[in-house]
Amino acid sequence: MAEDLDNLIICKKCRTLHRKIDLPAKKVARCAVCGHKLYSDVEGAFAKAVSYSITSLILFIVANLFPIIDVYVKSNHSQLTIPSMISTLFSEEFYVVGSIVLVVVVIAPLSVIFSYLALWFLTYFKLSKSLAKHIISFLMVSRSWAMVDIFAVSILVALVKLFGYAQINYGVSAIALALFVMVDLLFLKSIKPVELWTYFSRVYYER
């Protein structure tokens, strides 16, 4: 009975029930009713997410270490880094805003990256099934709270407000941040829960 249910999938968007079929590499299964993407080649998608999570970890560290923008107003100079932004919020006693920004811009994205790496380690050596389950659930929650992409767009909006009265130079981290968002959207956020769970059951139940 359990085997039977594992071959089924319900569309997230329109809730139509489908039967899963094995997919050749790089093919995508779509909902027959609404066309929403159901799942794709799971081994490939997972391997990609893992290898790109190392890339995105490096990009994320660079994006945090160096200034994203340099702002010059007459003789004054200031810099935007992610840590300086969060420490500014805390030093001005905006603890709630500071904490939420810390979670959505730093902690959640890092959680996603490390979850992928931990999951790769566990599934590669076929270790603790229950820990792997918890990591997948944790990864999905972290992913819905990770908002680096929205933060990057906000920098553009802030620039528009600053253009009038300040001179702005782009820092090293601006490029790192842009690349991070690209990798994040293409490989880390695109893999679906169902793909991870299918991969999970293939590894641990050898289906």
Partner: peptide, 16 residues
């Protein structure tokens, strides 16, 4: 969340 981010960014760089 955009506006909150924008305010946080401005509060960080416009701090003379």
């Amino acid at each position: 969340m955009i506006d909150v981010f924008v305010v946080s960014i401005l509060a960080t760089v416009v701090h003379f």
